[in-house]
Design a protein around this nucleic acid. Structure first.
Length: 262
DNA sequence: ATGGTAGGCGCCCTA
C-alpha cells in the first residue's frame, strides 16, 4: 500500500497536478492539507473519475482543510474539533489493517512567544491536545498511522541551518519538545527517518520567497509520516517527490510517500 | 536586520 501526505496549498488550483501525481507515483492513498475550500467546492468528481472513489474531507473558506483520498475502501470517517475550534485540521479513517489520521498543525505565526502571539499558543496547545488524544484513545500496540503537515522540523538535519533557525517558528526548542512528547506518548516511529539517516539533510518544504529553491536549498522537513510499532515491520519504501517543487505553479511543499507491505 | 512570494478573497489575511 502506497500512502502519501502533501500540503497542496489549494486543491482547486492544483487538482490537475494532484491527479498527475497520484497516477505517476501509483498512490493508493493521499492525505492533503491546506485544501482551502468549503466542501461544496471540493473537486470530488474529477478525483473520483481518476479512480479514487473513496474520499473523506473537511474544508472551510480560505484556510486550512484536510482530505483523505483513496482507491481502497475505508470505514469510520471522523472529523475532530481541536483546541476548541472547528477549523478543519484533523480527520481520520479506518482501513482493515490500520487507522489513519491526517492532521494540519497550525503554522504558529512569526513570534515564538505564547504570551504575545496567540497563533504560537494555539500551535503548542494543538500539539499537546494531539498527545492527550492519542494517549487516551489509543494503545501503543495498535496499528496506527498519523501523517500531515506538522509545521515543525524537529531534528538538526530537518532544517538547512540548525543554528540560524533556533529562534524561527518551526524549529524552536519548545516546539521540538512538544512534538517529542507527542512522539514518545505512543512510541511513534518517524517513518522518513527510518529510511533517511539522522545525519543526512531531509526536507519537504522550501519557501516561495527564494528565487531558486534548489540552488539555495533552504528547506525544512515539516511534513511527517509516523507509525506505531505494530506497523514498523511493514515499512518497505520511502520517497520524497522533490521534482514536484519544479512543476508549474507548485505548492511550497512536496509529497512524502511511504509504502507498507501489509 | 530586512524582505522576499503565493493563494484566497475582496483592498488584507495566512502561510
Amino acid at each position: 500500500m502506497r500512502i502519501a501526505t502533501w500540503n497542496i496549498n489549494s486543491v482547486r488550483l492544483r487538482a490537475p497536478l494532484l491527479l498527475d501525481i497520484m497516477a505517476e507515483a501509483n498512490l493508493d492513498v493521499i492525505c492533503l492539507q491546506e485544501t482551502k475550500t468549503p466542501d461544496e467546492h471540493f473537486p470530488l468528481d474529477a478525483i473520483k473519475s481518476a479512480g479514487y472513489p473513496h474520499i473523506h474531507f473537511n474544508g472551510m473558506k480560505s484556510y486550512n482543510g484536510v482530505a483523505i483520498i483513496s482507491r481502497v475502501a475505508f470505514t469510520d470517517e471522523s472529523i475532530y474539533e481541536r483546541v476548541g475550534k472547528q477549523d478543519c485540521r484533523h480527520i481520520s479513517v479506518k482501513f482493515p489493517e490500520f487507522e489513519l489520521h491526517n492532521i494540519y498543525i497550525p503554522a504558529g505565526g512569526d513570534e515564538p512567544d505564547r504570551d504575545i502571539n496567540e497563533k504560537f499558543a494555539h500551535k503548542l496547545d494543538f500539539v499537546d491536545e494531539m498527545t492527550g488524544f492519542f494517549e487516551s484513545n489509543h494503545s501503543s500496540d495498535s496499528p496506527l498511522m498519523v501523517v500531515g503537515d506538522f509545521n515543525i522540523a524537529p531534528q538538526e538535519h530537518d532544517v538547512w541551518s540548525h543554528k540560524q533557525l533556533l529562534k524561527i517558528v518551526s524549529h524552536t526548542p519548545i516546539e521540538v519538545e512538544k512534538l517529542s512528547n507527542m512522539q514518545a506518548s505512543l512510541d511513534w516511529v518517524d517513518a522518513s527517518r527510518h529510511f533517511v539517516p539522522e545525519d543526512e539533510k531531509c526536507y519537504s518544504w522550501w519557501s516561495y520567497r527564494n528565487r531558486d529553491w534548489r540552488k539555495s536549498n533552504r528547506g525544512r522537513r515539516l511534513d511527517h509520516i509516523w507509525v506505531t510499532q505494530a506497523l514498523k515491520p511493514a515499512l518497505s519504501k520511502h520517497d520524497i517527490l522533490l521534482d514536484v517543487r519544479d512543476r508549474e505553479k507548485p505548492s511550497d511543499h512536496v509529497p512524502v510517500i511511504i509504502e507498507l507491505n501489509l
